[in-house]
């Protein structure tokens, strides 16, 4: 089972999607701080992982090639963090079929593709951890983002199903469902940064990406033996 603590054992390898910015980048930093070797992928170039690559996680062949490269250069991954995603604010009537398919393809397809590419090795080794980044909106729903909410909700279903199916293999599957988080995804001038909105939150402030990273790293570590769970650091938006 992953420990991510370093010590004398070889460092374990984690794959992080959406690694070049925001929550994904914060996760890369936290995992490396905890001793993991981290391979990051993103549609954008850049990143701070031990290996960074430009990959469309919605493309199964590209994900398979990426995982093969990670395995060859760093070792077989025992941690998977599916953080790639994006949000669009569009009323339901204006969401095109192509926009819906793309949203589902990146969020749900990304998790599916990463899982298919990494799971056989983790099962063979008798342990590993998969963590997906969902959203508080997957729990509550929300306005003007039905395709985003649907895709994030689907992540929770797949997370729980995988957890149940893999319980006897030692591979654990959990989700983090962030509340409004202080990243570039929350644009300046939107309600999310309005002091009047922030005052309605029980904690009075946006979630820091580092909190999501600490939570994801905990779930990847295997500590607590958790599986099938959704942990939601959300500033009290969903209680």
């Amino acid at each position: 089972m992953s420990t991510g603590t370093g010590c004398d054992a070889p460092a374990e390898v984690a794959v992080v999607s959406g690694a070049a910015a925001g929550i994904g980048l914060a996760c890369v930093r936290e995992l490396r701080r905890q001793g993991w070797l981290v391979a990051g992928c993103d549609l954008r170039a850049g990143g701070e992982a031990d290996l960074d690559a430009v990959v469309d996680v919605g493309d199964p062949a590209a994900v398979t090639r990426f995982v093969a490269r990670v395995t060859a250069e760093l070792g077989a991954p025992t941690g998977v963090l599916s953080a790639a995603g994006y949000v669009e604010e569009i009323p339901l009537a204006e969401i095109s079929p192509a926009a819906f398919r793309r949203m589902l393809g990146v969020h749900l397809g990304g998790l599916h593709n990463l899982t298919r590419a990494t799971l056989p090795t983790m099962v063979d080794r008798g342990g590993g951890a998969i963590v997906t980044v969902a959203s508080e909106l997957a729990i509550t729903g929300g306005e003007d983002a039905a395709h985003y909410v649907t895709a994030k909700g689907a992540l929770l279903g797949l997370t729980r199903a995988l957890a149940a199916e893999l319980a006897s293999t030692g591979v654990r599957v959990n989700a983090v469902a962030p509340g409004p988080t202080d990243t570039a995804m929350l644009a300046a001038g939107t309600i999310w940064r309005d002091p009047a909105y922030l005052a309605t939150l029980p904690t009075g402030a946006l979630v820091r990406p580092e909190e999501i990273a600490i939570t994801a790293a905990f779930l990847l570590s295997g500590r607590g033996a958790l599986t099938g769970q959704v942990v939601s650091p959300n500033a009290g938006t969903v209680i």
Partner: peptide, 10 residues
């Protein structure tokens, strides 16, 4: 370090 984690049942 997790002030935003509140009201949750794990």
């Amino acid at each position: 370090r997790l002030p935003s984690l509140t009201g949750q049942i794990l």
